[in-house]
């Protein structure tokens, strides 16, 4: 199978971050995201390439991975701690992807932010996957969706540059 190098880097970075920092193994890749309660984090990056990354994670998975990351019980985690961990997850995946595709460039990541529509985690059942704005049509966009056991994680990345070189998968 052939895929572009950005897609390859996103897949590798997502798996690497989850395994090393959250001690989680991705169970399988998913073809698409099924609308369900999610927490959405987004950040932009400057440099070559410039662009943005969006991370959507099931509310159940967000709580579970936060507990793994902080080494505490799920019941003891606050909403703010969940948001902090989800933002850190987005930050690590984005930095890891960019370091893989542009090892000689310099880039700068913005501080990840939780999308306003997911602020109130108590009402997450009312939030759907389309909580955030779509990426621009110009440039390159890739998506990585995985099943974590406790829920789903979808990472979408958009760069302003055109298609990346193709690499064997």
């Amino acid at each position: 199978m052939i895929e572009n190098s950005l897609s390859h880097a996103l897949r590798a970075a997502t798996n690497d971050v989850l395994e090393r920092m959250f001690f989680i193994e991705c169970l399988s890749e998913l073809p698409e995201f099924v609308p369900e309660p999610v927490v959405v984090a987004r950040l932009t990056f400057d440099g070559d390439p410039a662009g943005e990354l969006e991370l959507k994670i099931s509310a159940s998975a967000a709580r579970s991975v936060s507990a793994d990351f902080l080494g505490t019980d799920q019941a003891d985690i606050s909403e703010q701690e969940i948001y902090d961990v989800v933002c850190e997850l987005a930050n690590m995946i984005c930095g890891s992807v960019l370091s893989r595709v542009e090892s000689t460039a310099t880039f700068r990541l913005s501080t990840p932010r939780i999308m306003d529509s997911t602020r109130d985690i108590a009402n997450l059942s009312e939030v759907v996957a389309s909580a955030s704005a779509p990426f621009p049509e110009v440039g390159d966009s890739v998506v990585q969706a995985v099943e974590l056991g406790s829920g789903r994680l979808v990472v979408s990345m958009h760069t302003e540059t055109p298609k990346w070189p193709l690499v064997p998968r």
């Binding site: 090393r20 930095g95 890891s96 370091s99």
Partner: peptide, 27 residues
Amino acid sequence: ISTDATHNRISRLMALGARGYITKPFV
């Protein structure tokens, strides 16, 4: 400790006085 593993960034920070550099994710 940074997600940024690019050569330029690591070189610049080491030149500024960093004694070590750990790239996230790490074990």
